[in-house]
């Protein structure tokens, strides 16, 4: 799955979790500005895991400032954040 697909997945899922439209710009916001909580991040990690077919740790979202940066790391196979 490419980073573009991951971004689409994140936009779709976050819109459901946050109950509002989510745009690509939102993925560049700090988490406190985005309004997502830890359950949203665990959920998103699970969705990505399902889509990619490999484990993705929710901690990945704590290691980057924005969802976009975290998704880029996942897409590039950043080893120590997957697992």
């Amino acid at each position: 799955m490419t980073d573009i697909d991951l971004a689409s997945l994140a936009l779709e899922r976050l819109a459901i979790y946050l109950k509002r439209p989510v745009t690509p710009k939102d993925l560049e916001l700090r988490y406190d500005e985005l309004g997502a909580d830890s359950v949203d991040m665990v959920s998103l990690a699970f969705e990505i895991e399902e889509a990619m077919g490999q484990p993705v740790s929710p901690e990945i979202f704590l290691e980057f400032e924005t969802v976009k940066q975290a998704l880029e790391a996942v897409a590039s196979g950043h080893g120590d954040i997957i697992g």
């Binding site: 988490y31 406190d32 500005e33 909580d37 830890s38 704590l62």
Partner: peptide, 10 residues
């Protein structure tokens, strides 16, 4: 400070 605001997690 003794208390800091984390932007992630909020």
């Amino acid at each position: 400070g003794d208390l800091v605001w984390l932007s992630n997690p909020n």
